[in-house]
Structure formats: structure tokens, C-alpha cells
Design a protein around this nucleic acid. Structure first.
Lengths: 314, 314
DNA sequence: TCTTTCCTTTGACTTTAGTCAAAGGAAAGA
DNA sequence: TCTTTCCTTTGACTAAAGTCAAAGGAAAGA
């Protein structure tokens, strides 16, 4: 993917933490995960059961299924055909791109998936019924936290070319997102241009979760030694993980690499969570520094390691 | 195992909790568990790699391996032979019972397991390095909680015959345990007799984790409508899960079924954690009611649902 | 328009994983 | 001592999972 992976944070990982995660992994995979799998494929090979489940209510293209399940193209093709001949799956040509096929469940397929879910739910319920209500709540909370943090840990933030398809896709999504959120709409013409975020002038970061872009952020030079952070965006499905902060950290790192001593940013009146995040990350409010029609608040942050140099006058 | 499984607690399990656990399961098994497996068997079939890992430094009998990994006897036999012919495993006859074989790792086998561990540790470390230190600590804590509660949920508490091998094994372990802990030692002659804990007179509970007994507790009749709880014990490997409390709950349930209106128990001066647990579970301290030479504290609890009846005089 | 790249299908395999039953030596119970 | 029960090995299979390469139609880029 992007050539330039986010530099690792240099705090060492304690061996105890590694051990704890590995112990949990062993226990969980063996005791809980295996159980679920075992019941998933009642009288059907596990591969087929998983495929059926993955196709799900909405259907999916073979290409997507292949990447989600990590299967060989030939193997998948045959399994889909097998399910089709059992009347559980229907395959059709993708409307937009006739190289692709999309698989969807028939009524019989849906019934089987529903039954799978019923069984797995029952199993899970049986497990949970071994705990009283307060402990169940404690378990649910702990699993929620673990899920959130594991996802966050697995996301990588990479420097990409501002003109790359992933960067454009993120910016488009960003633009559509805020166009809906700003009462006055949003003009995509005001987005950063690729040349503004390349080389010494700036950077463009994309966050990837399982090879899918789920967030972005741009850094460009406003003036010598002054950077501006723009378009920090997180995909709705990846919000509340703390990813915005990670992207922001990454951008500040890039700014430091470019010897910027200060970074600025502006934000819209409606984005109150963003404002809170900037404050929490050490940004302080400053007077208007640009003529961005969407902005209502302006912030800046002095970068550490930039020495005792004065920031340029505003 | 035991015929009479602990009645389910009747609080309903919320659908959200079931969904949360299933979602976590899916995510974790696919993303983390699968990764680990994939690296475990670098250029070796997963089954063999798992077997090698399971034999581990201490070695294990084939019988044990079969039950731990849930393998067919023939299949296991062949896999062990394959590893033996690769020089990774050495098989010998069990010294005590020549029907059994024990498998142990050769130097080469140990080196390979060590390498497996190194790889898996590195992978885990890589994952954790995506988080900053406070979040890593949060994740570790959440996984610890989840692990503890999942184990507790998977433990079943069953009524068994007081003379059964599992019951005897627990009582022996209990006796050895407190013999070591009491400064004056412990005379196993004072343990309950099987007839005291059967039928209407009482009950004997054994807690099972993955079919292994990991705790016990006894209930016997002291006087009409008065029960006594004795020998509540938890295996060292299953402590700090909250299992003692569950056994206690189970015993109180059995007491209620037998229409006891009150249960009593005594405890040794050295068992301070036990005393705290009894207090937290609603027991109140009472004067000496027996001549148990090991007892220093006496407690009782009125059972709910037993109506307005007076407890018998002390 | 002409490559080149994508996506899927098909054929031809190989490896892993797993099952079942028969058989034989060893220990435990009657 | 004589079953009966255990534990392991062996033979004979089957099913599932996975791999690799060739090929053909469709879209995208030059």
C-alpha cells in the first residue's frame, strides 16, 4: 500500500502485555471461537458455512468475498457454484462492471443463515447465562473496550500521494460528509490540491483498516515553518476508536520532520467534537488566520523539538 | 459428568450482550486468532505445529494430548510418528503404566517451539505497538477481565455423590491444602462422610472447568431446618475468578431446596479472605455453635424464601 | 486502437484433516 | 485366573481445503 508507514511509537512493549494477549488469544480461540465454528457448520463444510454467512443479507461480489475470506479464486468459484446448485445462492453479473459477479442469498440461503445465527446466539446465551447480571455487564464492557483497542491497534496510518485513488476516495467521502453536515453545504473546490501535500510542502495521510481506507488527514505549508492541518476525517464505521487523534499525531510528526515550528487549523462551527479533540491534543484557540468561509474557530499548536524559535508573526 | 447440573440463574440474557460477544468473537477469531495460527505453522501443517506446542517442554502422554487437542487416536498416533521421524519428538513408555506412551521434545523440537514462540511474540508485539502506553495498559486490563469472566462463565457447578472419585479428589486436595496452611495441621478424619451429604440430608457440589474438577463444597444437616456449609474449596489455578461465591450460591440453593431456613459455617483464623467473602455474601458472625477445633469464627445466613419461620434456637 | 490489467472459470493436482474398525499388549477388577 | 477395560497402532478410506496455471471476456490506460 502506501510506501511510507507511520514510524512506530518508540515506547517499548512490556513482555507481560505480550504474554497476556497471547494467553487470552489461546484461551479464546480454543474455547469460544472453536465452539462457534463447530456449530456454524452443522452439516455443511465449515468453508461453505462461512461463505454463506459472509455473503449475508446484502450479497457481495466474488472479489470482495475473496479478499474478506482470503480464499483462492478457483476455490471460491467452485464453492459458490456448489452453493448455487444447492439452491442457496444466486449469482449475477455486477451491474456496473461486468467482469465482476455478485452472489446473493436465495430465500433458502437466508433461512439457513438465520438458523446458523439462531444456533450461535443460543450457544452464546448459554455461555453468558453462567454469569450473574453485574458480571455479564462487566464482561460486555471489557469486550467492548478490547474490541475497540484491538481495532485501533490494527489500523495503520500511512503517507500516500495526494493524487492516489485512496486519497481521492477519502477526500470525496470527507466532502460528501461535511456537505451534509454544514448548513451551507460544502464546495469541493476548496479541498487541498495534490501538489500542496507532497514533498517538503506537506503530506497526506491515509489510515487503513484491513487494507481499506478509513480516514485521512492533510498537512500543507502555510508560510515558512508554519504548517496547516486540514481534512482530518474518519470513516463513520471507524469512529470512536481514537483514530482522529492518531491521524493528528501522525500529521504533527510529519510537520516536525519538515521543521515546521507550529501547526494551525480551522474548524467549522458545527464540529464540536473536533474542537474538543483539538483542545485535548494541546491546541489553543487563536484569532482568524485565513479567509476560509467555513471556519468559525482557529487553533494552533507549537511543536515540541522545534527548539526555542519564535513562531512567525500572525 | 454429574447428573444434576446447577439450575440456571433465571435473569434473562440481553440480546445486546449476545451480539457484543458474537461480534467480538468474529472479529477476534478472524483478525487475531487466525494470524497467530498462520504464523504458528510456518512451514508445517497447523495440526503438527499445535501438537508440538502442546507437548511443550514438560512432555505429555498421548492420552492427555488426545483429550487436550480433541484428536482421534489413530490420527494422533500417526502425527506423533511423523514428528518422531523428523527428529522433533521422542516417544517412550510411561514409567507407571506401560499402556501409555509419553511424548517429549528433542533438542530440535524445543528449538522449533522456541522459534514459534518468538514469532508469535513478535507478531503480538507488533500489534501492541500500534497503541500508546496508556491504551496498551487499558487493553491488557480489559483482556484480563474478559479472560477471567469467560473462564468463570464456562465453569459448571454440579451436584455429585460425595463418594465419587471427583468428590474424593477435591476433598483430598482441600485437606492437603489446609493441612499446609493451618499451623496445627489438619486431620482428614474430620471431613464430611458421604452419607452426610446425600439425599435430604445434604449435598456435595463439584465445579468443573473443561471436565476437570476445580472446586467443591458440601452441605449437611446440622439440625432440623438448619444446614451447615463445609469444605468450600477452589483449586489454586481457578482462584480469583469468583468461583467460591458461585459454589456458595449453589450450596444455598440446595439448602433452600431442602427447606433449610438457615445455614451456618465456621472458619479458621488463618482464612481471612474466606471470612471476607462470607461477610460479602450476607453471612453474619454468630457465637460458637460447634466444637470444631479448627474453627475460630462462626457465621450464619437466613435463607430467603424460607418464609417467616423462626430459626431454631442455637 | 491497442495493450495491459482485472476478474472469474476450469482442469488437474496435492495436502491436511479426519473417520472407522480391527487388533494386540497391558492393567484392573471379579 | 479370567474377563473386561484401556491405550495405542495399523490399514483403509473419505472429505475438505488449498494450490497453480492456463484461458477468456471485460474494463482501463496509453
Amino acid at each position: 500500500m502506501g510506501p511510507d508507514r507511520e514510524p512506530e511509537k518508540m515506547e517499548p512493549v512490556s513482555a507481560d502485555q505480550v504474554t497476556a494477549l497471547r494467553r487470552f488469544n489461546r484461551y479464546f480461540t480454543r474455547r469460544i471461537g472453536a465452539l462457534d465454528d463447530h456449530y456454524l457448520g452443522q452439516d455443511r463444510p465449515l468453508g461453505e458455512a462461512r461463505l454463506l454467512f459472509e455473503i449475508g443479507g446484502a450479497g457481495a461480489s466474488l472479489r470482495e468475498l475473496r479478499s474478506r475470506l482470503g480464499l483462492d479464486a478457483g476455490y471460491l468459484s467452485r464453492m459458490v457454484r456448489a452453493l448455487e446448485s444447492q439452491g442457496l445462492v444466486r449469482v449475477s453479473v455486477h451491474p456496473g462492471d461486468s467482469r465482476l459477479r455478485v452472489a446473493g442469498l436465495t430465500a433458502a440461503g437466508q433461512a439457513e443463515v438465520k438458523e446458523q445465527n439462531r444456533l450461535a446466539d443460543g450457544l452464546t446465551e448459554g455461555l453468558l447465562s453462567g454469569l450473574d447480571a453485574p458480571r455479564r455487564a462487566e464482561l460486555t464492557a471489557a469486550l467492548g473496550t478490547a474490541h475497540r483497542l484491538l481495532r485501533l491497534a490494527a489500523i495503520t496510518v500511512e503517507t500516500v500521494d495526494g493524487a492516489s485513488p485512496d486519497a481521492r476516495a477519502c477526500l470525496d467521502a470527507y466532502a460528501a460528509d461535511i456537505d451534509e453536515r454544514f448548513p451551507e453545504g460544502f464546495d469541493p473546490g476548496t479541498l487541498v490540491r495534490p501538489h500542496e501535500v507532497s514533498g517538503d510542502a506537506g503530506a497526506f495521510l491515509v489510515a487503513y483498516e484491513e487494507d481499506r481506507p478509513v480516514g485521512c488527514g492533510a498537512l500543507r505549508r502555510l508560510a515558512p515553518r508554519v504548517g496547516e492541518i486540514r481534512h482530518v476525517w474518519v470513516h463513520p464505521a471507524a469512529r470512536r476508536l481514537g483514530l482522529g487523534r492518531r491521524i493528528l499525531d501522525g500529521l504533527e510528526q510529519r510537520a516536525t520532520e519538515r521543521e515546521f515550528t507550529v501547526v494551525r487549523l480551522d474548524t467549522h462551527a458545527t464540529l464540536t467534537e473536533a474542537r474538543a479533540m483539538y483542545r485535548a491534543c494541546g491546541y489553543t484557540e487563536i484569532p482568524r488566520y485565513d479567509d476560509n468561509v467555513y471556519a468559525a474557530y482557529w487553533f494552533e499548536k507549537r511543536l515540541p523539538g522545534a527548539g526555542a524559535q519564535e513562531p512567525p508573526a500572525r
